[in-house]
Simulated assay, not measured.
Amino acid sequence: MGFRLGELVERLGGQLEGDPNIEVIGIAPLSDAGASHISFLSNSKFRAQAGQSLAAALIVSANDDATVAESYKGARIVVKNPYVYFARAAQLFEAQTAVIKPAGVHPTAFVDPSAQIDASAHIGPKVTVDAGAVIGAGVIIDAGCYIGLEAQIGEGTHFFANVTFQAKCVIGKRGIIHSGAVIGTDGFGFANEGGVYVRIPQTGRVVIGDDVDIGANTTVDRGALADTIIEDGVKLDNQIQIGHNCVIGAHTAMAGCVGVAGSAKIGKYCTFGGAAMVLGHLTIADNVHISSGSLVSRSIHEPGQYTGFYPLAKNSDWEKSAVIVRNLETMRDKIRSLEKTIKTITKHEES
């Protein structure tokens, strides 16, 4: 199974340079592609490799096309953003081989009689659907998932095996939640009385928009009173923690092991590198990009790239730097004293 290049262009757009009847059966990296594959060039530093590729066709940008065409003799699809075009083409190829889950409820699943499940939804083995839950058209709930009391799952959303979706949580259309994710667990809310912690009931929800992807073993806490909100198009990688009452703005993306403490408000179109940390009750503007491993300890009100980690060094060099940092206050006092002395000498000479 495959696609003619002409068919790909008809579906996805782009300018085809070459034979539209060439058929490709899949996408492969530049180094591995053969005569039945299509590949893509998304980074100009690999132009030379693209020129020597054995792929039947390449997806390239207009900026790279002329250079690549000097040595590459296959067909080319010229587009604005080759990486995005590759992603959309990959979806087409995936759809050709996707296993279609049958509609209906597996005999081993438990569905409360008051739950509403669209006839086109798939409810897999050992799934539990609690009272009052609403599951929309084309939803896929794989084996072992738990859908809580009055939870709502929008059209075309897919829960992979062993997702926990707690009471009254909501997710919109076309969402994807991967195995082991827990949505709607209690937030970390306690009041301290003389060193003893008193639990604060977490009565809010998690409300998730459309087209949201949530990775394996990621946890999103329910709100204490108001809701935790994940807006449309957000992409969360594996093993991320989102604290209670956070707001994650539309189309923001977070890489693995990011942690966001409670009540943080993050804007739209932000990115967070792996293991970045955000302290609670902070506000981050739209279009902010946080480097991997950074600690965000204050609110950010202007878009841009922010980095907050100390560069890796040999341990001996790091220890020397640490000594310097510890002595900065003393060094500052000495410098100020020297500045005063120099100022006094200069004034005396001038007089």
Rank of each mutant, 00 (worst) to 15 (best):
R88T: 07
L54I: 02
F110Y: 14
A48Q: 11
I335R: 06
H348T: 15
L16Q: 08
A133T: 00
S114E: 12
A224W: 03
I147C: 08
N43I: 00
F160Q: 13
F86T: 12
A87C: 15
G195A: 06
A276C: 12
K126C: 08
L8R: 05
F272E: 02
Y197R: 09
T341V: 09
A90P: 02
S61P: 08
A115Q: 04
V170H: 06
D112W: 05
A33Q: 03
T307M: 15
L5K: 00
D333W: 07
T283E: 13
N287C: 12
S351I: 13
A115C: 09
E231I: 02
V296A: 04
I77W: 00
A131T: 07
S294F: 01
G262L: 08
G175Q: 09
F110L: 14
P303I: 06
I27M: 07
G51K: 09
Y310H: 12
Y72F: 15
H301E: 12
K268G: 01
A56W: 04
Y197K: 11
V207N: 04
D65T: 12
K80P: 06
S120A: 09
E339D: 14
A255V: 12
G273R: 10
S61C: 11
A250Q: 10
R174Y: 11
A264T: 08
A261C: 06
M331S: 15
R332P: 09
S179T: 15
M1W: 10
H178R: 13
A131R: 03
L338F: 05
L41A: 05
T307P: 03
C145K: 05
N192W: 13
G256Q: 10
E349F: 14
V220H: 06
V170R: 10
I153E: 00
L92Y: 00
V207S: 02
S351W: 10
A253G: 03
R4M: 08
S263H: 01
V247E: 01
I300K: 09
D210M: 08
L54S: 11
G204K: 00
Y72K: 05
Y310K: 14
V196Q: 14
E302V: 08
L312E: 14
I342M: 13
L338C: 05
G308F: 01
T271E: 04
T157A: 02
